[in-house]
Design a binder for these strands. Structure first.
Lengths: 241, 241
DNA sequence: TATTGACTCCTACGTTGCGTAATAGTTTAG
DNA sequence: CTAAACTATTACGCAACGTAGGAGTCAATA
């Protein structure tokens, strides 16, 4: 039988934590002395080992409790689910890192809220559908959109907006300037990678849509400066010739 | 001037959040009506935009406050630091994912606490040093150990232990069995990748150390079953001939 | 004008996993 | 037997809000 101090020293778990695990019923001590001191035996220690194992994998304590208490719990299934969860978190972080890098290089400080609004994205998708109908490109978009988490999607749209921000900073140049044309290519590549294969045909249609004066135009101009949408459309038009 | 409701609908930020940002001083409204209603103007909205931007990058609110309030704050430096932080988190998750995968395949349910104890790791390192002196391998270890975060190191040790767990499950086989020998190679590769280049010479020395009856032997046996250390040492000896 | 419905305010508890006192009783070594 | 070391319980603190409750406000309708 070991006291809290001994258990703590052996396992590295703090005394407070042991007390806490007792109060939440995760790891009740084997018995108490008359004075109320907690005493743990080997069985309790094994349970603690289990707890530490799952805690290491970032399971929340409540889940750990149900997992360990369930007599015939499917360990592997829980592990797989947790792996999935961790993977999603990882991807989220990867997205954020890319986003932060781009923010740094473009030096944005204004960004339209609608860009952050996921519901608007579907609106754009619907508009695109109106223009293109049930083309293979639209199907591809829907597929990618449904496969990827909305989180990944959201950040993809944000990064797309950052490309327009770069357009915004080139407005003093001519639309056929080399740097501007390169930017158009970056746009095309980005769309191809994250939404659907973007041929020059489609890009042309997009350019027209950007400058058509609708919500898309507004959003671009608000995020990247007034006139950016039209400017980008011009550059796109030249690029697609 | 916009009310909380309007701001909320425009930005997707909840009313409660706006109230909260007011109480913590992050985003005080431009003014209050006589009735105490919060009113926001364009300047406040821009500030909110900034806040959302940094929040997206998982900056804590307190930092966001200091960042935005500092008149000549080095944005890029803050972004770089945040990128680093996010990268560390990502690496941690990658480690955990690998750990979880290995746990799943090996089916461990016992793991010695000392394995989780970082302080012991340095002890092993010191022992290794006694055996090898200031060899280039030891220098390599120290370099890798200092470069990698202690977190990554810790999980590397855990995964090393899992390799011994697999040894433990092969104890009924002969040490020169093909599967066992393959396991030795896996051990060698793992050490090479995560600690230092592990030649057969060094591996031989390690094998002797594992079976020498010291703390290392105890830890291996406790984590992977009694007799595992000796068994692994035999297999290693054969492998190194 | 009174009422209704929509909106807003503030207060305050719940969440997660403990850290950190503060106060008081217990055990052990000298 | 006393002091040192250990333990217990209680309870606040943190991060970033969600949620609920009670009450005052605003705009429009009956």
């Amino acid at each position: 039988m070991m006291t809290v101090n001994e258990v703590s020293k052996l396992t590295g778990v703090s005394i407070r934590t042991l007390q806490y695990y007792d109060t939440i019923g995760l790891l009740p001590p084997t018995e108490y002395t008359e004075a109320g001191y907690r005493l743990y035996d080997d069985t309790a220690m094994e349970r603690l080992q289990q707890i530490l194992l799952f805690k290491e994998l970032e399971f929340p304590l409540k889940e750990i409790k149900t997992i360990i208490d369930a007599p015939n719990f499917d360990r592997n299934k829980a592990l797989e689910q947790q792996i999935e969860l961790l993977t999603m978190k990882k991807e989220h972080l990867e997205n954020l890192i890319n986003f932060a890098r781009k923010i740094k290089t473009t030096g944005v400080n204004k960004m339209d809220f609608n860009v952050f609004d996921t519901t608007k994205m579907d609106e754009y998708a619907r508009k695109a559908k109106e223009q293109w109908g049930e083309t293979p490109e639209y199907k591809e978009y829907k597929e990618k959109a449904s496969n990827q988490s909305s989180d990944t999607q959201k950040i993809a749209w944000q990064n797309l907006m950052l490309i327009f921000v770069e357009f915004g900073k080139m407005k003093d140049k001519s639309p056929d300037d080399e740097a501007v044309q390169l930017q158009v290519k970056k746009l095309q590549d980005y769309i191809s990678e994250h939404f659907y294969k973007c041929s020059k045909e489609i890009l042309k249609g997009l350019g027209a849509m950007y400058a058509s004066g609708g919500e898309f135009t507004e959003n671009i101009d608000r995020a990247a400066g007034i006139g950016t949408a039209v400017f980008a459309a011009k550059a796109i038009e030249i690029y697609c010739r």
